[in-house]
């Protein structure tokens, strides 16, 4: 990758860092080991950003969805689902590429040198469908049907899978609170193991969590082909050189389908196109 392309990528990382800071700027939370309790927490943020992060100013949309579905008096979450639909229909997985703090962490981790980075492997295409299963089972079905005596379900995705919650909320809060340290058990160990695995895999594979696990990416991916802001390929200008497909780390071929569900709109293809056919 030449210097100009690296600079362009760092511009995107700058935007990701700025957004992550803006949405996690309750700095006294990090100092005191507490979380923000103000009215902004009513609002969802577009990316996967745990609301138990000490700095978080908004609510995680996947957490919000499970909270409402799992509550005893509501069985569908119009607010969170509407938010996901609105954001997805507006910009699709642009959120993954630019506005998700956990995506940003994975981007940075993938910059760590490793002897053999993996682009594709056997069964990779099928594994990408796993995120839809996780969304259906852990975000929708389990909180809805696996309920306690008063009809309340738990946020099973957050509880059993989400490594973003462990990284953004679990580690800082446990480090800053003695009482929490004494309450640690197998669940924390399990979630730390999942986080460690995600960190290691992110060094080797580009954004493994986004590709295979993330339910938020699964939702936004459905809207990618129809979103208001999307890529367009000028077929008359395209020379079919294949450079766009080569530079795509989500293994999309923009010349064939510029708004593929897996495209996170990082802009690498757009910048690499020698004839400027992708807009």
């Amino acid at each position: 990758m030449d210097k100009k392309k690296q600079n362009d990528e760092w511009k995107r990382h700058g935007a990701q860092a700025l957004w992550a800071f803006l949405t996690n700027s309750y700095l006294s939370g990090f100092a005191q080991g507490k979380i923000y309790k103000g009215k902004l927490k009513n609002l969802c943020v577009p990316g996967l950003n745990c609301y138990s992060c000490p700095g978080a100013l908004g609510a995680c949309p996947i957490g919000a969805l499970q909270a409402v579905i799992g509550s005893w008096n509501f069985k569908f979450a119009f607010y969170a689902a509407g938010f996901l639909m609105f954001t997805g229909a507006l910009c699709g997985r642009f959120v993954c590429g630019w506005l998700c703090p956990f995506g940003f962490v994975q981007d940075l981790l993938h910059k760590i040198p490793f002897p053999k980075k993996i682009r594709v492997f056997r069964g990779e295409r099928l594994l990408r469908k796993l995120k839809y299963v996780i969304f259906a089972v852990f975000v929708l079905l389990l909180p809805l049907f696996l309920v306690d005596i008063i009809g309340q379900g738990q946020p099973y995705f957050c509880k059993l899978i989400c490594p973003a919650g462990t990284l953004e909320g679990g580690i800082p809060l446990v480090l800053l609170n003695q009482s929490m340290r004494s309450a640690l058990g197998w669940l924390y160990a399990w979630k730390m193991a999942l986080l460690a695995m995600t960190v290691f895999l992110s060094v080797v594979i580009y954004r493994p969590f986004c590709k295979y696990i993330c339910p938020l990416g699964a939702v936004y991916s459905v809207f990618n082909p129809v979103s208001v802001f999307r890529y367009r390929v000028d077929k008359t200008a395209c020379i079919g050189c294949g450079i766009c497909a080569d530079v795509c780390r989500m293994q999309v071929d923009p010349a064939k389908n510029a708004n593929h569900p897996e495209c996170i709109r990082c802009g690498a293809c757009k910048k690499a196109c020698p004839v400027g056919a992708i807009r």
Binding site: K41, A59, G63, A67, G82, P155, K159, V174, L187
Partner: peptide, 27 residues
């Protein structure tokens, strides 16, 4: 849908969850 959800009080559920430390989320 967001408007409908807000009208029927879903935001209060989100708020209640978000302003208390989510023990499930942090493990």
């Amino acid at each position: 849908m967001m408007g409908f959800g807000i009208c029927r009080g879903e935001m209060a559920v989100v708020m209640e969850k978000a302003v208390n430390i989510c023990m499930e989320c942090i493990g």
